[in-house]
Design a protein around this nucleic acid. Structure first.
Lengths: 224, 224
DNA sequence: TTTATTCTTGACCAAATTTTGACTTTCTCC
DNA sequence: GGAGAAAGTCAAAATTTGGTCAAGAATAAA
């Protein structure tokens, strides 16, 4: 899974340069040349943000505070300033690290990696599950097959989410019902059959392959 | 290994009755007639807890939340209440199932068994039994002979699972039937013969060797 | 409200599995 | 060796299960 990095700097040349460099190293990058643009691009749910402090209008410190109200991820400041006071300000604002310009690309990569790794350790299940060209974004509940978004209803996505988060494991219908519908699976588990059918049809039409396998007498399994 | 069950109810008559009943069915039972007593008895590390909701002092729901901070095991509520709200409350509190009083002992046993079984299945690490080139993946329920996957039906796999998990031990047909079909399952043990035959045929065709040995007059044994 | 979408149900069919019963073979003990 | 019990074989019947479809509820959207 490619990590998403958001770069915010008012120097288009710099963002351009960094973007390609980071992309070369496997990251998915979005760039913003102003605070407003940055806020607009928060919906890409970056895993890490590189933030310039010196910017016209709302500066990096302010922006950092605002961002913190929206999402949780490492924020690294890019800055020419190096005073102690700056560091304090930055960390108070919610930043995680400082990188002073000019910086080496090696160092930048190393720091990014370190922060992502730590972030990963600390936390939550992956928000994106991928399998065979299919991308399932659990946090915004979207499914993609090569740029093309596939639309699933709530229940359908719930089932996909449950199964794909536990790949290769077999779950019987009762178990799926319980996991998706919430509690006390008194309901008819025949519903599952129908939803599975719909899901399969949509996935098959788009991708041409089966993702859900039937294990006779046992249930269904998400093939990974 | 006998499963340990903790019963919590403020009616001594009920706990007494349930205790002996469950003990008759092979469980190790501790009983508590108050929440405090229940907490004290958590150190017996029960595999499952039966919890009355209506109790003086800390009630079952409260107790449930507290217990959840200590140990992980299925918690089944025994209750006279049956409203939807109660269910929601109970499940929010961390309960796994509801059994409304008055309940049949058969139902109780069945539910206990189901929960223990599921708990067992979920909590065990991917377990793999191998013998002579054969790989039996219990969690994926798959069997391989040199890269080649052999397909078995549910019952067939259940039998393989039971026998191969207890290699070199002889089990008579009754015993196998009980293990695979369920506790009070009643039926002709002639079925076993047929399933064993099918299993043997599949294993033999793929691997060319016998894994299940007949011990005349005694039963079958998985050769390891 | 009307309208559209999603969710659920029940019926039906087809496929796979499970079980049964009749029959044969094998083993044990006299 | 032969009787009787136990195990093996086979095919057919019975049952379960999963896939499909259409239509009725329920829910959300307009």
């Amino acid at each position: 899974m490619a990590y998403r990095i958001l770069i915010v700097d008012d120097e288009p040349i710099l963002t351009e340069l960094l973007s390609t460099h980071l992309q070369d190293h496997g990251y998915t990058v979005s760039a913003a040349n102003s605070s407003d643009e940055a806020l607009a691009k928060l919906n890409t749910k970056p895993n890490l943000i590189l933030l310039d402090i010196n910017m016209p209008g709302m500066d990096g410190l302010e922006l950092c505070k605002v961002i913190r109200n929206h999402i949780v991820c490492p924020i690294l400041f890019l800055t020419a300033r190096i005073t102690e006071q700056d560091k304090v300000n930055g960390l108070r604002a919610g930043g995680d690290d400082y990188i002073t310009k000019p910086f080496g690309l090696q160092e930048l990569l190393a720091r990014i990696e370190a922060h992502l790794r730590r972030d990963e350790r600390n936390n939550r299940p992956p928000e994106v599950v991928t399998s065979q060209g299919l991308i399932i974004n659990l946090s915004d509940r979207k499914v993609f097959w090569n740029e093309q978004e596939l639309s699933f209803s709530k229940r359908e996505f719930d089932i996909i989410e449950f199964l794909s988060s536990n790949p290769n494991q077999v779950f019987d219908k009762e178990r799926i019902y319980e996991a998706v519908w919430g509690y006390d699976a008194e309901g008819d588990s025949g519903v599952i059959k129908e939803h599975i059918r719909k899901i399969r049809a949509k996935l098959m039409r788009a991708s041409g392959s089966e993702y859900i396998e039937t294990v006779w007498g046992m249930g269904y399994r998400w093939k990974k």
